[in-house]
């Protein structure tokens, strides 16, 4: 199989551009809080809500945009599936690395301002400087959100409105990931679902790999013979 360099490059380049803009925005907000309020906790801990949705829509776009592109250029669904899987497996750590760097830059900024970079919610890590744990947590989160986006995107691409049926499965994957990192998914109605698992690095790795493989296994039957739509 050919290495999906173009697919990865397209997504990575866009992600870096977005991240640079988002980094500036979060920094400006942080400084605004310092100037006009009380800066007493990590801003990036809150700011990671949006990147997970970006990861989700990257997964949707993989199927909605790149699957038709690949097939129209003579690739098979099987080839696309393999390239998309490799892309997700490499893009998720890339995003996680960007978030980890963001926390470290924030650490430097808070040091300059002499403010405590307090982490207020449950995580796999207790300090933003615990780089391997920060990286592992967001790696799992992005893996699951991208593959969940791919699964739901495939459902809508194949069945139109019938794709709504895939949403509960996508949510279940996200809940599993959050629970495995000790986090709490702040989405309406989801607090009723509590798998009550004790997070650990081993569990994070296990859940991450398991959710990724499960997501691939669920998505493949939806795309393996999917027809390209006749309308844009």
């Amino acid at each position: 199989m050919r290495f999906p360099s173009r697919l990865l490059a397209a997504n990575m380049w866009f992600a870096v551009m977005l991240w640079a803009g988002y980094l500036v925005l979060v920094t400006v907000i942080t400084l605004a809080v310092e100037l006009f309020g009380e800066l007493n906790q990590s801003a990036w801990e809150q700011a990671t809500q949006l990147p997970r949705w970006y990861a989700f829509f990257t997964g949707v776009t993989l199927v909605r945009q790149f699957l038709p592109l690949y097939i129209a250029h003579g690739q098979t669904r099987r080839e696309f599936g393999a390239q998309a899987a490799v892309t997700v497996a490499l893009f998720a750590p890339f995003l996680s690395a960007l978030i980890t760097i963001s926390y470290l830059l924030e650490t430097a900024l808070y040091g300059l301002l002499d403010r405590p970079q307090v982490i207020s919610q449950a995580h796999l890590f207790t300090e933003p400087t615990q780089v391997p744990l920060v990286f592992a947590e967001y790696l799992l989160e992005f893996l699951v959100w991208i593959i969940g986006g791919s699964f739901i995107g495939a459902g809508f691409y194949r069945w139109g409105a019938g794709g709504l049926l895939t949403i509960p499965v996508g949510i279940l994957l996200a809940v599993l990931a959050e629970t495995a990192t000790g986090g709490e998914l702040r989405l309406p109605l989801l607090r009723v679902i509590d798998l009550n698992l004790s997070p650990s690095a081993a569990m994070t790795a296990g859940v991450g790999i398991g959710a990724f493989v499960l997501g691939l296994a669920l998505t493949w039957p939806l795309i393996r013979d999917v027809p390209l739509r006749n309308k844009a």
Partner: peptide, 14 residues
């Protein structure tokens, strides 16, 4: 076969 076949439609996949 497919890598040697091209269909260009108005839907703009490519």
């Amino acid at each position: 076969v497919t890598r040697r076949v091209s269909l260009i439609r108005d839907t703009g996949e490519t």
